[in-house]
Simulated scan of single mutants.
Amino acid sequence: MSRDARYFEQLFVGNDDPWAFRTRWYEKRKRNLIMASLPRQRYARVFEPACANGELSAELAGRCDSLLCQDLVPAAVQLASRRLSQWPHVRVTQGHLPEDWPGGCFDLIVLSEIGYYLDLDRWLQVLKLSLASLTPDGALLACHWLHPIKGCELDGRAVHLLIERQLPLFRLLRHEEPDFLLEYWGCQPRAIDLEEPCE
């Protein structure tokens, strides 16, 4: 089963940080690991669905020319919009996956803590849309909690196994800890552009 909008809306009632992204060391450290895992210094166009209140988005904003963030919950969209208001190249929209997948191509798609909230069919649709939206040298970063989540059909390991089985991409990075799995998949069999200039 997929978690419906009401589940997430309830999380944001009277709480602007329901997963404690701003305060928990686990979340801060994981965010730092995600950013350190991006092999390119800068990306042209990034898509981050399920952005929640925009804490990871704020880190991504400094590494790209254009960032599109999306969330299902209106309260999350408002919070992320405020959090990211200092960056004119960032846009936050409300949308439901996979129905509201954006048009255009991206050289980075970030799927963080989202896969297990969708049922199998919807997750497979998201993966298909992700592949179709990647530029020829684009990449997909996925990071998910590995422990079971009550009421979810998939767990983090199953989510990542489906990426491996369904997408004809090169796994360029894998980092696993007891609590989460982080992987970076690319359209090309290389992780670092050695010709990329330093800023």
Rank of each mutant, 00 (worst) to 15 (best):
M1F: 10
R3H: 05
Q10A: 14
L11S: 11
F12S: 13
P18I: 03
A20G: 14
W25I: 04
Y26F: 14
R29L: 13
R29A: 14
N32W: 06
A36G: 07
L38A: 09
R40E: 04
R40P: 02
R42C: 02
Y43G: 12
F47A: 08
P49A: 03
A52Y: 02
A58L: 13
A61N: 02
R63D: 02
S66C: 02
L67A: 04
V73Y: 01
P74L: 00
R82E: 08
S85G: 11
V90C: 08
Q94E: 07
Q94S: 07
P98N: 07
E99T: 15
P102K: 05
G104I: 12
C105S: 15
L108D: 05
L108E: 02
S112D: 06
L118A: 04
D119S: 03
W123M: 14
L124C: 13
K128A: 15
S133K: 00
S133N: 04
T135P: 05
D137N: 05
D137C: 09
G138T: 15
A139G: 06
H147W: 10
P148V: 02
G156V: 14
H160G: 01
L161S: 08
L162Y: 13
L162E: 09
E164S: 15
Q166V: 12
L167N: 02
L169F: 09
L172G: 00
D179E: 11
F180N: 08
Q188W: 10
P189K: 04
A191T: 07
A191N: 05
P197A: 09
E199F: 06
E199R: 15
